[in-house]
Design a protein around this nucleic acid. Structure first.
Length: 268
DNA sequence: ATGGTTGGACGCCAA
C-alpha cells in the first residue's frame, strides 16, 4: 500500500491557500504538514482542504507568528501532541498518529526557530533559543513508543551537509549552516536513531535545496539555495521508502513561499 | 562587503 507524506513551509496559509490547493490537486499526498501558517486556529482555512478530501486537520497555530498544521485524508487517532519546546509558548510542533498498511505511525511536524542573523548566543538570544530547541529535540527518539513507527518532517532551519547549501565555505558563519547547529542536528538524528530519508534517495554529493531566498533577483539563475526542510523516519520505514520528490518548480509559482514542498512516498 | 524581499500587524520585527 502506497503512503505519501509531504512537508511545506507555506509562509502564511491564508495568503497561499490557493497554492496549497494547487499542490494537493497535482500531487495528492495522503498527509501534508504545513509550517509557518501564521494563523490562529479559529481562522484556519479548513473548508477548501476538506472539499479536496482532507477531512482530518490538526492545528497548532498562533497569531502572527510560527504555527504548524497537519492535514490528512487518512483518519488520525486521538493521540495528538502539541509540545511546547523551550517552554516559551510558541506553536512550533504538532504530532499525530495514524494507521496504514498494518502499521501505526507517529508523524511529528516541526518548525524550528530560524535563529536570527548573528550566530552567537551571547549577543543574539534568538540563536540561543534555536540551540536550546535543538538540544531538547535530542530527547526525541524514533522508537519512543512500542509498536509505533515514526516520521519527523518540517522546516528544521538547518542545512547539515556540505551539499545542502550552495557554498559550504561561504555559509560556515551563516545561521543555518554553522558547525554548532549542524553538529546539534546530527546529534538529534543519531541519538534519536532517525534516518535522513531525502539523502537515502539523493546522494550526499549532489546539491539539494528546498529553500531559496526572496532577496535574490533571479532565484533560479543564482540557485543559491539551502536544504532547510527535512523528512526523517525510524529505521523500520527506511526499506519501504520508494520515492522522494522536491517540488522545485513550486518556487516559481505565482506569489510563492520561499520554501518548496518535499514529499516522501512509501510502499507499506 | 553589502543589500537585497516578504508577511503580519500597524511602524517594525521576524524570516
Amino acid at each position: 500500500m502506497p503512503l505519501s507524506i509531504a512537508t511545506w513551509n507555506i509562509n502564511s496559509v491564508r495568503l497561499r491557500i490557493g497554492l496549497v490547493e494547487q499542490f494537493l490537486k497535482l500531487h495528492s499526498p495522503d498527509i501534508l504538514c504545513l509550517q509557518e501558517t501564521k494563523c490562529p486556529n479559529d481562522q484556519f482555512p479548513s473548508k477548501p482542504l476538506k472539499a479536496l478530501g482532507y477531512e482530518y486537520i490538526v492545528m497548532h497555530g498562533q497569531k502572527g507568528y510560527h504555527g504548524v498544521a497537519t492535514i490528512s485524508r487518512l483518519p488520525l487517532t486521538e493521540l495528538v501532541e502539541r509540545r511546547d519546546y523551550c517552554g516559551v509558548g510558541d506553536a512550533r510542533h504538532v504530532s499525530v498518529v495514524f494507521r496504514h498498511g498494518g502499521k501505526s505511525i507517529r508523524l511529528h511536524n516541526f518548525y524550528v526557530p530560524a535563529g536570527g542573523d548573528e550566530p552567537d548566543r551571547t549577543i543574539n538570544p534568538k540563536f540561543g533559543h534555536k540551540l536550546d530547541f535543538i538540544e531538547e529535540m535530542k530527547l526525541l527518539h524514533a522508537d519512543a513508543e512500542a509498536g509505533i513507527s515514526s516520521i519527523l518532517v518540517g522546516d528544521l532551519n538547518i542545512a547539515p551537509l556540505e551539499h545542502d547549501v550552495w557554498s559550504h565555505k561561504q555559509l560556515l558563519k551563516i545561521v543555518s549552516h554553522t558547525p554548532v547547529e549542524v553538529d546539534g542536528l546530527m546529534e538529534v538524528m543519531t541519538r534519536g536513531a532517525w534516518v535522513d530519508l531525502m539523502r537515502r534517495k539523493i546522494p550526499a554529493d549532489q546539491k539539494l535545496y528546498t529553500w531559496w531566498s526572496y532577496r535574490a533577483q533571479d532565484w533560479a539563475k543564482a540557485d543559491r539555495g539551502r536544504r532547510l526542510d527535512h523528512i526523517w523516519s525510524s529505521a523500520d520505514l527506511d526499506p519501504h521508502l520508494s520515492e522522494i520528490t522536491v517540488l522545485r518548480e513550486a518556487r516559481g509559482w505565482e506569489r510563492p513561499s520561499d520554501h518548496v514542498p518535499v514529499m516522501a512516498t512509501f510502499d507499506l
